[in-house]
């Protein structure tokens, strides 16, 4: 047995001695391959990741620069005025003052005889949805003829807050006009500082101009208009 082991060791030593000139370069090549897989490949991954990150950050910076440009050039007074008009037309929450203002200003203009009415509020925590917009429903009893009621329907459709007349029932003794007043809470889920902002479009400006001409809009906007003109005069 010992003689067999000695023979094996001797033959190993013989092979090593014969090929010792090859050992060092092969080891170096193997080490190079190991270094390449352990360091160079991860470094290359890191470079690709850094490039992607840099590209994404560059795009964000471009967006932020464009946003800053818009925000610095915007007139805040005009912005406030436009926002007030739009908020009157479509309030962020149930605007009972606005609704009553709309109803009574229409009554005054059309001369109809308005009876006692009530809001169909229901569960205050919930909202009724009309065509996917939350609404406040109202049934207004009116003691007037067909022509006057038609005028009422026409006029209130051009008031703020925006309303939809969904039913008219005119009878000999009594008539009822059923309305839905729209409102829309704000969803902040789309708000982000990184998103490109846009100044108001031409269509938006035309819409605001249209809303400002609505029957009761000017009376509701008056205090803001007088402040804006007095500050402009200064």
């Amino acid at each position: 047995m010992n003689e067999k082991i000695n023979a094996d060791l001797k033959s190993l030593k013989f092979i090593l001695n014969k090929n010792k000139v090859y050992i060092f370069p092969i080891v170096v090549i193997l080490v190079s391959i190991m270094l390449f897989s352990q360091f160079v490949i991860p470094q290359a991954d890191a470079l690709l990741a850094a490039r992607e990150e840099a590209l994404a950050t560059s795009l964000k910076i471009e967006t932020l620069k464009a946003n800053l440009d818009i925000l610095t050039n915007i007139n805040e007074e005009t912005l406030d005025s436009q926002l007030k008009t739009l908020s009157l037309a479509l309030p962020l929450s149930k605007d009972f003052f606005g609704i009553l203002n709309s109803v009574y200003s229409t009554v005054q203009k059309t001369g109809v005889d308005l009876g006692n009415f009530s809001f169909k509020i229901g569960d205050l925590a919930k909202s009724e949805n009309g065509d996917n917009f939350p609404v406040v429903k109202l049934s207004a009893p009116i003691n007037s003829g067909v022509t006057a009621i038609n005028s009422f329907v026409e006029t209130i459709s051009k008031n703020v807050p925006l309303a939809e007349v969904y039913s008219v029932k005119i009878g000999n003794t009594s008539s009822t006009v059923s309305l839905s007043f729209y409102y829309r809470p704000l969803s902040a889920s789309n708000y982000s500082q990184d998103v490109r902002i846009s100044s108001i479009s031409q269509k938006g400006l035309e819409l605001i101009s249209q809303l400002e001409k609505f029957e009761n809009a000017s009376s509701l906007l008056e205090p803001l208009v007088s402040v804006a003109t007095s500050s402009a005069a200064q």
Binding site: L83, L90, I197, K203
Partner: peptide, 10 residues
Amino acid sequence: VKLFVLNNRV
């Protein structure tokens, strides 16, 4: 924020 609300209302 005002511009966001404004565009949302429009």
